[in-house]
Nucleic acid binder design. Structure first.
Length: 303
RNA sequence: GGGCGAUUACCAGAGUGGCCAAAUGGGGCAGACUGUAAAUCUGCUGGUAGUACCUUCGGUGGUUCGAAUCCAUCAUCGCCCA
């Protein structure tokens, strides 16, 4: 008797989102759509914590859909999500959106309106010599920006101008996404425990061959800069591999960066609550069965 | 045993008589964020009732109107001579 079109499971890194989503999917026959901005890349497995072996027979979507070295973004995610969502729906099943990338999740729950604006090489070249200040002045001539993200770097400012210019001259192809009615489950993990788990998990991933994983991606031709762009594990391990950090420096800095990342994730989720989303927090420490049961209750599904 | 140099808030580290609750960086905490989001950016960070008061700069005791800053002494650490 629920009108939910989707179940969303979110939480900071190392909170156990994936296991919970898989357990729930097994219990009531669901399919999982990943809401993770890094698990989309192939061969980036250990560092993104894909844990594909956990899924068993549960179908998953939006994992391994790009090559390492490519650059995926929210716009593409929104479209890919819509497609996967429709497919699962067509099968008469309920999808679970599970991930830790707050903006990706919110973009589909809210139905962000993003314009399909292609790259404008000519314009980019034209603007390439400008300073951020000059670009900011130029930006201020537009009434209202369509792209509401920060314009605090030259790259972003140019992108914002690109979007405005495109919008001025053409009618962009706007795919209308509507907000989705989703039950939102947040995995709540005590801060100190979270930090402890992050550190432990980092150690075990290093033992499982995470360094080799990054090294082999570099050897296959992906440039270190492109890997550094991905942040966290891929950034610090690459810096270690190319000799810019010692092992100890890499470990200490990466550990810290993951802690900070987890904190930022929580800030996003709390922000979502302030923006009107209801998140049902479940204690990460509860036994899996209890977590699954409590979600089933929220959904009014008989257990 | 002798000589010199250190000792500052969670950490590193400035400050060397008043403008010092103490620069700066890191960490931590909180927040923002519709096209890099594992990114980027902002605020706070001794205590309390928020421009005021209280307790701080290794310990103790002095000098001074006034000390993190000067003196004495003790403690710990580092380097040099034995």
């Amino acid at each position: 008797m629920n009108s939910y079109e989707l179940i969303t499971i979110l939480g900071p890194t190392a909170s156990g989102k994936t296991s919970l989503a898989v357990a729930l999917a097994k219990a009531i026959d669901l399919e999982i759509i990943s809401g993770d901005s890094r698990q989309v890349y192939r061969r980036m497995d250990i560092g993104t914590g894909k844990d594909l072996s956990e899924y068993g027979s549960v179908p998953y979507h939006l994992i391994d859909i790009c090559d390492a070295g490519e650059k995926y973004n929210v716009f593409e995610f929104q479209h890919d999500f819509a497609k996967a969502f429709a497919e699962i729906k067509a099968k008469g099943k309920l999808p679970i959106l599970c991930g830790g990338t707050g903006m990706y999740i919110e973009s589909v729950l809210k139905g962000y309106k993003l314009l399909a604006v292609p790259e404008n090489r000519e314009l980019r070249e034209q603007l390439s010599g400008f300073t951020l200040d000059e670009l900011t002045v130029k930006l201020s001539t537009y009434k209202e920006l369509h792209n509401k993200t920060d314009v605090d770097s030259v790259k972003r400012a140019i992108r914002a101008i690109e979007i405005e210019e495109y919008y001025r001259t053409k009618t962009p192809d706007v795919t209308e996404f509507s907000p989705i009615n989703s039950l939102i489950i947040g995995v709540d993990i005590d801060r100190d425990l979270r930090r402890e788990k992050i550190t432990k998990r980092l150690k075990s991933r290093l033992e499982e061959g995470m360094i080799e994983e990054v090294r082999s991606i570099i050897e296959s031709g992906v440039s270190p800069d492109d890997l550094i762009y991905y942040g966290l594990e891929y950034k610090y391990l690459t810096l270690y591999i190319i000799g810019q950090l010692t092992f100890d420096e890499m470990f200490a800095q990466l550990e810290m960066a993951i802690h900070q990342f987890a904190k930022r994730q929580m800030t996003w989720f709390r922000g979502m609550e302030r923006r009107g989303f209801t998140i049902h927090w479940v204690d990460a420490m509860l036994p899996m069965e209890e977590k699954v049961n409590s979600i089933c209750q929220l959904m009014n599904v008989p257990i």
